[in-house]
């Protein structure tokens, strides 16, 4: 494979190309197909959905064993999932702040619901794949409730959300035409959002 000499590049290679050429990934234990799938989803999240700090995890943070397939973790631009009970709490807080602002003589009458974005696990999958409950539970057994904090210390992580009690992953399903659809999968019986 003829790589362009780094000293004189007419065009910077696309991020996905850079990722694929990353030497660290060459020594990866996973099959190239699952690795490239993870990279495809990473690219999609980063550049189509404005996620930041999307990282590939090859080993389980729980057992340090290699994962069944590489997983991703990243920070969405805004909160991806609000549990209905937390939503009630947030709305109450927002209402309290609105009345406080009114009493202070403020003019704004908007209900500001403040939910800090949270890091999410992302499980890359292809649409043609067959899944079983067994495989799904293996994935959940290998992950923590909250993805490990970012390696870069400058990213300010808020205190742990007390409402986040069950594991969840964002299932990113890629079709052959590169469409990616995202579903949230919870571990256990979690009541639906009232969206």
């Amino acid at each position: 494979m003829a790589c362009p000499v780094a000293s004189k590049q007419p065009v910077e290679p696309a991020p996905i190309q850079q990722l694929v050429q990353d030497s660290e990934l060459q020594s990866h234990s996973h099959l190239p197909a699952s690795t490239t799938l993870a990279l495809q989803i990473q690219h999609n999240l980063q550049y189509q959905h404005a996620w930041t700090d999307v990282r590939v995890h090859s080993h389980s943070p729980v057992t340090n064993e290699p994962l069944v397939r590489p997983l991703l973790s990243g920070l969405p631009p805004k909160r991806l999932y609000v549990h209905p009970d937390e939503q009630i709490d947030l709305l109450k807080e927002a209402q309290r702040q609105r009345t406080a602002a009114k009493q202070a003589g403020g003019k704004s009458d908007t209900l500001d619901v403040k939910a800090q974005p949270e890091r999410e696990w992302v499980l890359p999958a292809r649409l043609v794949e067959k899944w079983t409950l067994h495989r799904l539970s293996d994935i959940f057994d290998a992950i923590t409730t909250v993805p490990p904090e970012s390696a870069t210390p400058n990213v300010e992580d808020s205190a742990a959300n007390p409402w986040r009690t069950t594991k969840r992953v964002v299932l990113a399903t890629a079709d052959t035409d590169s469409t990616v659809v995202f579903y949230i999968v919870h571990d256990g019986v979690v009541k639906p959002r009232q969206n």
């Binding site: 959905h49 991806l80 999932y81 579903y183 919870h186 571990d187 639906p192």
Partner: peptide, 11 residues
């Protein structure tokens, strides 16, 4: 028994 709940992620 193991159960998983699914919802559309919304994006």
């Amino acid at each position: 028994v193991r159960a998983f709940s699914m919802e559309w992620a919304g994006f």
